[in-house]
């Protein structure tokens, strides 16, 4: 196709995209997929969202419930979550962007809406030791993910737990100390290290934990328990 022809074709394509409409929201324009391409081609990412001290203060004022700050290491994005539901030992934290993480004693056991989510975990053994701040060897920990094919991928690792120093935990309404527990985990072709700062009652107050091959590591910080 000659460049001379390209322009009218591009104009036609644009006209067609603009012309697409329907009565249902579900009427998907086949050209929608094109919208993502320029950004992909340029390789530019929007600046990662940051949470300011004012936003934290406003969130603390706006609700009485538990608050959590999560930072994704890869993108640098910071997200503020509030607790929206509790089911037994599991607390679901969500935000207005319909992202969610589920915590059990401060350990993220699943995520939703982050892209490449951690679907569920079997963390009974790991959490028992971490919560008790006990060093241990070969503690099993199971993480489940969806593949792009929509099948479930199970990653089973064994973790060695060691105790670190006592660390100050300061943020939001928290001003206390916790014990660092380092987990060095490997299995199913992956290996990663997590760190949990565990408070006096056995709850993880802040952490750096691995959420899978797509999301990588996130840092968590409880702002109010």
């Amino acid at each position: 196709m000659t460049p001379r022809m390209l322009r009218p074709v591009a104009a036609l394509a644009l006209a067609l995209v603009l012309a697409a409409c329907g009565s249902e929201q579900q009427t998907v324009n086949p050209l929608n997929a094109l919208k993502a391409i320029p950004q992909v081609l340029s390789g530019q990412r929007p600046a990662p969202p940051q949470v300011s001290a004012e936003q934290v203060a406003a969130a603390l004022r706006g609700t009485n419930g538990p608050l959590l700050l999560v930072q994704q290491e890869q993108s640098g994005a910071q997200v503020l979550f509030t607790q929206i539901e509790r089911n037994g030992p599991y607390a679901t934290y969500g935000n207005a962007a319909r992202q969610a993480v589920v915590l059990r004693k401060g350990l993220i056991t699943s995520s939703r809406g982050l892209g490449g989510d951690l679907m569920s975990t079997q963390s009974d053994w790991l959490l028992a030791r971490v919560s008790a701040r006990q060093p241990a060897r070969r503690v099993p920990y199971i993480l489940r993910f969806l593949t792009p094919e929509d099948e479930t991928r199970v990653i089973t690792v064994l973790c060695d737990l060691t105790l670190g120093q006592s660390i100050e935990v300061k943020g939001g309404t928290l001003n206390t100390r916790g014990t660092a527990v380092n987990a060095s985990c490997a299995g199913s072709g992956v290996s990663f290290s997590d760190t949990y700062v565990v408070g006096a009652n056995g709850t993880i107050l802040s952490s750096r934990q691995w959420l899978g091959p797509t999301l990588g590591h996130v840092a968590t910080q409880a702002l109010r328990l």
Binding site: N87, G88, R112, G113, G115, F145
Partner: peptide
């Protein structure tokens, strides 16, 4: 994208 990018579901209300 494994699992897609859509928003989180509602949690179960026990």
């Amino acid at each position: 994208i494994p699992g897609g990018r859509e928003g989180a579901p509602l949690p179960v209300a026990p």
